[in-house]
């Protein structure tokens, strides 16, 4: 395994961890918030407003975590490209180069 291969593997592992961690935290935040919202949505006068707030909450939580995952994948891809370029440069360099 080359050094660049190890960096590539580490990058992929970190992206996997951030993605899985963000998905898990998003689920917890939504499930935790669902409990008080479930009670509020049973109270007739405020039920419609509660449902709207609940939806806004879930969408915003999902949005924030979605951005985290997209950024993580983007950074991972950028590092991949950088490592690929470094590898290509290593291969094209002649053995006599310093």
């Amino acid at each position: 395994m080359s050094d660049l291969g190890k960096w590539r593997g580490l990058t992929a592992l970190v992206v996997d961890a951030v993605t899985a961690g963000s998905t898990a935290v998003e689920r917890i935040q939504k499930e935790t918030a669902a409990r008080p919202f479930a009670i509020l949505e049973q109270i007739e006068p405020i039920a419609p407003a509660s449902r709207v707030v609940h939806t806004i909450h879930d969408v915003s939580v999902g949005g924030v975590h979605g951005i985290i995952r997209v950024v993580a994948r983007g950074v991972g891809t950028a590092i991949e490209v950088g490592l690929g370029l470094a590898e290509a440069r290593q291969h094209t360099r002649s053995p006599t180069d310093p």
């Binding site: 395994m1 291969g5 190890k6 590539r8 593997g9 580490l10 992929a12 592992l13 996997d16």
Partner: peptide, 18 residues
């Protein structure tokens, strides 16, 4: 150690740390 803990994930995802 990493392989012992998540080695099946590394293999499944084609990770170069496997």
């Amino acid at each position: 150690v990493l392989n012992g803990v998540v080695g099946d994930h590394l293999a499944r995802t084609g990770n170069e740390l496997v």
